[in-house]
Nucleic acid binder design. Structure first.
Lengths: 198, 198
DNA sequence: GCGGGCTGACTAAGCGCTTGCTTACCATGC
DNA sequence: GCATGGTAAGCAAGCGCTTAGTCAGCCCGC
């Protein structure tokens, strides 16, 4: 069993590097962040970064990969075990938006720093993003087929709903006007209205 | 009288620098762009940039300032001379979204590179963004007062509508599935539905 | 005693920006 | 018509510094 201390234990080096990198990339961008920023924030020498990652770009890729897989899992879980498309879309938007507000730091990195990736790594990320898109389109398709949604273009509406959620990561601030739950609830209504289901 | 040639004349140095900077900042980000990238693309030596701008950051600020003022003017023009809030919101969203699709390169810079600005310059940009926000909130307020819009939170809905339009700049591609006009028309419907007016 | 985690010292390359100077242009005086 | 003086734009070179990444060796848990 790992250390069970009363105060928060110091995470292992890999985790500390990941946390420091996410914070730095979100605040200053990939190119605005130095490897020294990351390693010293993680409490290590500059060279230690290269014990765990082959390059700064690979570190970004790892963060983006894990982050995207987490979101894909999130949206799949949101709609699982629900039959009604209205409830499916409501839950999906609520969970997606709440997550982008709560995790806006990480979400900023995985949505706005992708252009720093190599072509191969970018392609891998795009594949996961496509899978996320497929989940949303599936919900809309079923809603249209069931006659509870109406929209002139399912693809664009799916894109707009995801887009609305992603942009939460850009503007949301912890010390702001609303809690993640409040934003999530409001956006649920907006999304359902967008498909004519509210 | 300036040169009136048949083929497109070479723009003056300032304009060429601005164009090169927008393209480079949009593609690689502020910190990922070197002053040599910009000046050589503009057909000049590295030093020439400093004839026209005090620093790379001031060049970004100038681009952001002009770009934001253009958008503010755009939204004010959209709603001017219209009485009906429904038509006002429809026009505003259409114009705002079409512009963010057509000018997605410039829009990317002025929405996603602001963190590279100094505190003073960022504050100046935020002031313009506030003015844009006020225009949208005004339309929603009048629609709610007239009983043609319904929403639990005017502020958040105004933010969401702007957010939807801004994010177009992130995902829109020239060689993509839709023209700017098609996106604009669809988003007009989405926005009107969001306020319960369609 | 040994292997992975880590460091201090290092390099080659690249960065923003400056310097010293040249060129193109234009108004003015005669 | 044309020399004169002034100005702004531009360039080649390069300064001072920072960058991502390397490497020989040390430390410590097993």
């Amino acid at each position: 069993m790992p250390c069970v201390s009363e105060s928060t234990p110091v995470p292992d080096a890999r985790t500390r590097l990941a946390t420091a990198a996410v914070d730095a990339f979100a605040a200053r961008g990939f190119h605005g962040t130095t490897t020294r920023d990351i390693s010293t924030t993680a409490g290590m020498s500059p060279a230690a970064l290269y014990v765990h990652h082959r390059s700064k770009e690979e570190l970004l890729f790892e963060l983006a990969r894990v982050g995207h897989l987490r979101v894909l899992e999130l949206v799949r879980t949101s709609v699982a075990g629900i039959a009604d498309p209205v409830e499916q879309l409501g839950r999906l938007v609520e969970d997606f938006v709440r997550d982008h507000a709560e995790e806006h730091t990480g979400a900023r990195v995985i949505n706005y720093e992708l252009s720093a990736l190599t072509d191969e790594h970018l392609a891998a990320i795009r594949a996961i993003r496509h899978d996320i898109d497929v989940v949303v389109r599936g919900v809309l398709d079923r809603g249209v087929a069931a006659g509870v949604f109406s929209t002139p273009d399912v693809r664009m509406t799916a894109l707009a709903i995801l887009s609305l959620g992603i942009d939460v990561a850009r503007w949301y601030r912890d010390e702001g006007r609303w809690t993640p739950d409040q934003v999530a609830a409001h956006y649920r209504l907006l999304a359902l209205r967008m498909v004519g289901a509210a």
